[in-house]
Simulated scan of single mutants.
Amino acid sequence: MARESTEPSVETGRWNLQTVGGIAALTEAAIYIAGIAYFLVILNYANVTAPRQQVELFVANQTSLYAMYLLIYVVFGIVLVALVLALHDRLKTGAPSLMQAATAFGLIWAGLVIASGMIANIGTATIVDLYATDPSQATTAWLAINPVVEGLGGGNEVVGGLWTLLVSVAALRAGMLHRVLNYFGVVVGMAGVLSAIPALGVIGGGIFGLTQIVWFVGLGILLLQASRQTIK
């Protein structure tokens, strides 16, 4: 009679990682929604276009803005690492080469987003301090800092788009996840890639952000369902 192994099985480890990935995907969607609600509804940032007015808005909302930058950039990037690794674990056997590239872009994206949040928070604190003594200099500083933040974490979504696109193509090739979600992910990824074109930056970035919320939700549900099936 074969001896029963007392070591943790690979399936148990995989179930744990897929569960974490599912929770991470749903968390990313929630962070997206929180960020949109904060900037568009609470701050009404879209209607504040003059740099001086933007600086005044930051001064009036420094604490909440710091917390939101921490959430939508730093926490988002950290959670993204868990999701990238979970997807790599799930899809690597079906499309190894594609998933190697996808995982690389996913981790790069996570690093860029985290860096963007750190710069945004330090930059905002600097601007607020400058505003107390020289509002004009604070506005000039904002005009210098904002392109850096946007370039790293939101002005274009080419890196995040490539990750989404490659993951979706890999899932299609491996016959995993769900075909509808995978084709939808291709559309989401293409929108992110097209945001690198200046004429399409705002439209592509907007489509990418909104549609990726749906993609994250669908992905989270599928990963959590897969984790339950693995332990049955």
Rank of each mutant, 00 (worst) to 15 (best):
S9I: 02
Q53R: 15
F39W: 15
A46Q: 13
I42R: 11
E11Y: 05
I36G: 10
Q18N: 13
S9V: 07
R14K: 14
V20Q: 02
Q53Y: 09
T6V: 11
A50T: 13
I23W: 04
V10M: 11
L57G: 03
A34Q: 06
I23T: 08
Y45H: 13
E11D: 14
I42A: 06
A24G: 01
T49H: 11
V55S: 00
W15I: 04
Q53T: 10
E28M: 10
T49K: 15
F58M: 14
T27F: 05
I36E: 03
V41F: 14
G21H: 00
V20T: 08
A30D: 06
L40M: 13
N47I: 06
A25L: 03
L40D: 12
V48S: 03
L57H: 04
I42Y: 15
A30V: 08
L26F: 04
T49A: 12
I23H: 02
A34L: 11
F39R: 06
E7C: 07
I31K: 01
F39G: 06
A30L: 05
N16S: 06
L43Q: 12
E56S: 13
V48A: 08
A29T: 03
E11A: 14
A29Y: 05
Y32V: 12
L57K: 01
G22N: 02
P8A: 12
I33G: 07
V59F: 05
A37P: 03
L57S: 11
E11Q: 12
T19P: 02
E28G: 04
V10E: 14
Y38G: 02
L17S: 10
V59E: 04
T49N: 13
S5T: 11
R52M: 13
V55E: 00
E11W: 07
G35W: 03
A37I: 15
F39T: 14
E7A: 13
V55T: 00
A46V: 10
V48R: 03
T49S: 14
I33H: 10
W15K: 13
L17F: 07
I23L: 08
T19K: 11
A29N: 07
Y32E: 06
V20H: 01
N44T: 08
A37Q: 09
Q54R: 15
L17G: 03
E7Y: 07
R14C: 04
A24I: 02
L43C: 02
I23Y: 02
T6S: 13
P51L: 07
V59G: 08
L17R: 12
Q53M: 10
T6D: 09
G21S: 02
A25K: 00
F58G: 08
A24M: 05
A24D: 01
Y32R: 06
V10I: 07
A34N: 06
Q18E: 12
T27Q: 01
N44G: 15
Q53P: 07
T19D: 04
V41T: 14
A30H: 07
R14A: 02
T6N: 11
A30Q: 07
A24F: 03
E56L: 06
I42W: 12
V20S: 06
R52D: 15
T19H: 10
L17K: 10
W15Q: 14
G22Q: 01
N16D: 07
I23R: 00
S9L: 11
N16E: 09
P8S: 11
I42T: 15
V48G: 00
A25Q: 00
F58P: 00
T19L: 09
A34W: 09
